[in-house]
Amino acid sequence: MRVFLIITFMLQTALLSAQDLKPFKQIEVQITPWHRIPALLKLPDNLKGGKRYPLLICLHGRSIAGTDITKIFRQGVARQMHEGKNIDAVNKVDGKKYEFIVMAPLATSWSLGPEHLDAAITDVLKKYPIDSSRIYITGYSAGGWSVAMAVTDKRTAKRVAAAVNMSPATIDAENLKSFQVTAQNNIHVWYFGGREEPVFLGNCKLYADSTNKYKPGLTKLSIGEHKHCCWEQYYNPSYREDGMNIYEWLLQFKR
């Protein structure tokens, strides 16, 4: 009887954990030859054989880092989807509707550097039906640092089709001098910042200007009346500028 109760409890716990992660499942991704980290993954509901799907990688802020995968639901794309919102989007360029494969990795501390993100992309490309010409990244705060580091890194930039960057933290000095990499790889980036977060808004402007210096028109900047917060209004698929939400905007671009 005791064994039966223990097994029942374990099954109930596993079921509850799976329900808590809806609509995602938990996986592990390789970020070095010796290190794997947990991640949330959402595949399209009705995968079609032979079809490949856009990949959207979602990078969290510093306060989320650690070991509790459920903390990812506090902000960002994963929160929107966990609350039941649908991010499937119509590409305004070709008029087709796209379903995303969504991955939200959990960093042990801070966020993922470009070498780790590059390894994670390589790992999931081997396992899931991803359209390698439509790899998109988005992040906020420390996750915004990760996005900016990625688009200024020669290894990772060549894999990214477009990015959405919200309130990014200050990137490394070497990368601050490398926005020509972003331009050379034709990466469009939509930046979001708040008037009451001067350092982070300043980073948005600096990164956008540094890209446009090499290739004008690659960036878009939206400024809100808020502090270092409030990214949910932009991640919500109902938020639109120029007739598009961020998911529709991303789909315009491919490698």
Results as ranks from 00 to 15, higher is better:
His82Ile: 08
Phe73Val: 12
Lys51Gln: 14
Asn236Cys: 10
Arg155Phe: 11
Lys25Pro: 05
Ala208Gln: 12
Phe73Gly: 08
Ala14Asp: 08
Lys97Tyr: 02
Lys127Met: 11
Glu28Ser: 14
Ile6Gly: 07
Lys96Trp: 04
Leu112Asn: 04
Leu250Cys: 06
Pro54Lys: 06
Thr170Tyr: 04
Gly49Val: 14
Glu83Met: 10
Thr70Cys: 01
His35Met: 15
Pro33Phe: 12
Ile130Met: 05
Thr152Ser: 14
Glu196Cys: 02
Asn203Ser: 08
Pro168Tyr: 03
Asn236Ile: 09
Ala119Asn: 15
Ile223Pro: 03
Tyr140Cys: 05
Gly113Ser: 02
Gln26Asp: 06
Asp68Lys: 10
Asn236Glu: 09
Val189Gln: 07
Pro38Val: 02
Gln252Glu: 09
Ser132Val: 12
Pro44Gly: 11
Val181His: 02
Val199Glu: 11
Lys126Glu: 12
Arg159Leu: 13
Trp249Gln: 03
Val29His: 06
Thr211Trp: 09
Lys158Asn: 09
Val124Arg: 04
Asn203Met: 00
Leu16Ile: 13
Trp249His: 03
Asp88Val: 03
Glu196Trp: 15
Gly95Ala: 03
Leu221His: 02
Ser238Pro: 03
Trp145Asp: 06
Ala157Trp: 09
Gln19Tyr: 05
Ser63Phe: 09
Thr219Asn: 02
Lys127Pro: 09
Lys96Gly: 07
Asp45Ala: 15
Gln233Cys: 05
Trp110Ser: 13
Gly113Ile: 01
Val93Asn: 10
Ile135Glu: 00
Leu56Phe: 10
Met149Asn: 15
Ser146Tyr: 06
Leu218Pro: 06
Thr182Phe: 06
Phe192Thr: 06
Pro237Cys: 02
Thr108Pro: 00
Ile6Ser: 03
Asp45Ile: 15
Ile6Asp: 07
Glu115His: 13
Trp145His: 06
Asp242Ala: 12
Met103Thr: 13
Ser210Leu: 10
Asp88Gly: 05
Pro54Ser: 08
Trp231Gly: 07
Thr122Val: 11
Ile246Cys: 01
Ile7Pro: 06
Glu248Gly: 07
His226Phe: 14
Ile171Arg: 01
Ser178Val: 05
Val124Pro: 01
Glu248Arg: 06
Pro54Glu: 10
Pro38His: 00
Arg79Leu: 03
Lys25Val: 15
Glu225Pro: 02
Lys205His: 13
Gln180His: 13
Ala107Pro: 00
Thr152Val: 12
Tyr214Val: 11
Ile57Ala: 08
Phe4Ser: 06
Ile7Met: 08
Ala89Trp: 01
Ala18Cys: 10
Leu43Met: 11
Arg36Gln: 14
Glu232Asn: 14
Asn165Arg: 05
Ser178Tyr: 08
Arg36Trp: 06
Ala89Pro: 02
Met10Gly: 03
Lys127His: 14
Asp131Thr: 09
Phe192Asp: 00
Trp110Tyr: 15
Val164Met: 10
Val102Leu: 03
Tyr53Met: 00
Leu221Thr: 14
Asp131Gly: 07
Tyr247Cys: 00
Trp110Ile: 13
